[in-house]
Design a protein around this nucleic acid. Structure first.
Lengths: 180, 180
DNA sequence: ACCTGAACACCGTTCAAGT
DNA sequence: ACCTGAACACCGTTCAAGT
């Protein structure tokens, strides 16, 4: 049954807005993608966005969640490969959304919503690799090793390392974890 | 001789603006520190800032340069210490300006000025440690090791790691470079 | 329930005008 | 040379009003 003026489910309209927001956030960044532009791309006036999302950061987090879900799903396909290859896969997966990554870090301070998402994101990433690390890395330094890997991968993404440099960096990270 | 209405050198007035901008950028971040607030803190109207600085990013970069210069000067005092201690020193030095670090990464895409500064910053940081690394790390993987160290330190800063975690992370980084 | 027009309090920046 | 008032084109967000 039609739920709004365009004979769409509320969820369908929400998804349309998310799609518009997603491509605009990617193309123009958080600041460049104004609520006005996003609304226009979704065929709405800016204020209507607030019927679907509390504020711009909630919309941003919803877009970030979209990519996070996709990432977690896709990990299954590489979960059995060597760590170095998984790291390269992760960098390559995040590379297209590197503007979003930078935005998350910039807005963590200003938006509790983004801060919460950022904290969850890191937990999920750690969960993704924790099992693979425990057997090899001694307990005392384990958290430090995980942090090094996490930050190095984030850095590779935000600094847009080329394929060779990425490959070397991921090898270096994996090699470190293999040595006891 | 007096050069403006307040009987100050242009440089002195510029420094006043920089001081105001610096503390506001630190306290409220790039977005929170509006040109209006900065101007008010310096006893001026917003538009007058454009007499001294081309735009907000030029002012921001000038503030960032202030801290970079201080950082490079202070490094002399720890240059002879073990690498792990130098890394801890670097994290501790950057910790107070972690909002600026996040802002740099967020604005690299939008401002050529910030992009240039960011590129220079990394060159300076690499120069600071390059000599200490060359003897220990083999040539092929050297760039990757430097990248890991750089990104891990940046991550420790932006994610505000506590003292213990920072210490462990820096030990881990230094230990890696010591092993051949 | 869904959407809009109009308004609010900002923002960075420009420019003619003052001293 | 230095500084301002006034204006411009935005911005995110709110709210009363429409359907």
């Amino acid at each position: 049954m039609p739920r709004n003026r365009q004979d769409q489910t509320k969820q369908a309209k929400r998804d349309e807005i998310l799609a518009a927001a997603s491509s605009l956030f990617l193309a123009e960044g958080y600041d460049g993608a104004s609520m006005g532009k996003i609304a226009a791309a979704a065929g709405l006036t800016p204020n209507t966005l607030y019927w679907y999302f509390g504020d711009k950061d909630e919309l941003f987090v919803a877009v970030a969640d979209l990519y996070l879900d996709r990432l977690l799903q896709n990990h299954g396909a590489v979960a059995e490969k060597p760590l170095a290859q998984q790291f390269v896969w992760l960098v390559d997966s995040l590379r297209p959304v590197r503007h979003l990554v930078a935005t998350v870090h910039a807005r963590v301070t200003r938006s509790p919503r983004v801060e919460q998402w950022h904290s969850d994101f890191h937990k999920q990433m750690e969960a993704l690799f924790e099992d693979q690390l425990t057997t090899k890395v001694p307990g005392a330094q384990r958290a430090a090793e995980v942090a090094v890997v996490t930050f190095a991968i984030e850095g590779a993404v935000t600094h847009d390392l080329d394929a060779d440099a990425t490959s070397n960096l991921c090898d270096s990270l994996a090699q470190r974890l293999a040595a006891e």
